[in-house]
Computed example of a mutant assay.
Amino acid sequence: MSTIRQVQITFDCAEPERVARFWCEVLGYVVPPPPKGFASWDEYNGSLPPEQRGAWAVAKDPSGEGPRLYFQRVPEGKVAKNRVHLDVRVGTGLVGEERLATLQAECARLLALGAVHVQTLIADEDNESCISMQDVEGNEFCLD
């Protein structure tokens, strides 16, 4: 008997709320409501000891279909390339110039949110075009 399990993707970062809000904009995700008994996340964070305030944030798919993204504050900065990265699938089913134009348009939108363009790989005989990028804290991801 096979069991399907949900996954959560966790990001180590310096500013969890900032990175969570970036990914909400990228994916159409939302920040969930604050815990019961709190009118806002600011109120919730204000109830915590200073060292725990803003220590984590969440971005979730409002439809409940996509994975939950969890962002946790860590003291060290990013020092190497990610071993795992997200592919944001904006060009699925598109080929050639139409695919490249779609990827470039999404790249422009994400640049305005603080992303960084790393490299555009143009289609060849084996692969379609894709664009490598970094989020607001330098985590690599691809527009595919």
Rank of each mutant, 00 (worst) to 15 (best):
T3S: 13
H85W: 06
C130W: 13
V79P: 02
S47M: 05
L94C: 10
L86K: 03
W56L: 14
C142N: 10
A123F: 09
V7M: 11
V74F: 04
G138M: 10
R68G: 14
F22I: 14
A101V: 06
G77D: 11
K60W: 03
G37Y: 00
A123H: 07
N139S: 12
T3K: 13
V95A: 15
A14Y: 02
V136L: 06
D124A: 04
V136Y: 03
Q6G: 15
E140T: 09
R21Y: 05
V88A: 01
V90L: 08
D144L: 15
R18P: 14
N45A: 08
F141K: 09
A59E: 01
C24L: 10
V19S: 09
D12L: 06
E128G: 11
D124P: 11
G64D: 14
G91H: 15
D61Q: 04
V58Q: 00
R21V: 04
R18W: 01
P35T: 05
P34S: 04
E17M: 10
T120G: 02
S129L: 12
A39T: 12
E25P: 09
A112G: 08
S2L: 14
V19A: 11
F22Y: 10
A123C: 08
N139E: 10
D135G: 02
F38A: 12
P49I: 13
P50G: 07
F11A: 01
N127Q: 07
G114P: 01
L143N: 00
I122G: 03
P67H: 06
R99V: 00
A59S: 08
G64P: 13
G114I: 00
L143C: 01
C130R: 09
L69W: 03
F22T: 07
L110P: 01
T102W: 14
C107N: 01
L121W: 13
K81L: 12
L69M: 12
L111K: 07
R5I: 08
P33A: 15
N127G: 05
D12Q: 11
D61Y: 02
L143G: 00
Q72F: 04
V84H: 11
S129H: 09
D42M: 05
V84Y: 03
P16T: 08
D126L: 07
F22V: 12
F38E: 05
E51I: 11
R53T: 10
R21Q: 11
K60Y: 07
H117T: 15
F38D: 14
E125H: 09
C107S: 05
H85N: 13
N45S: 08
A123S: 10
S132C: 09
E98G: 12
L48Q: 14
N127K: 07
D12T: 08
V58L: 10
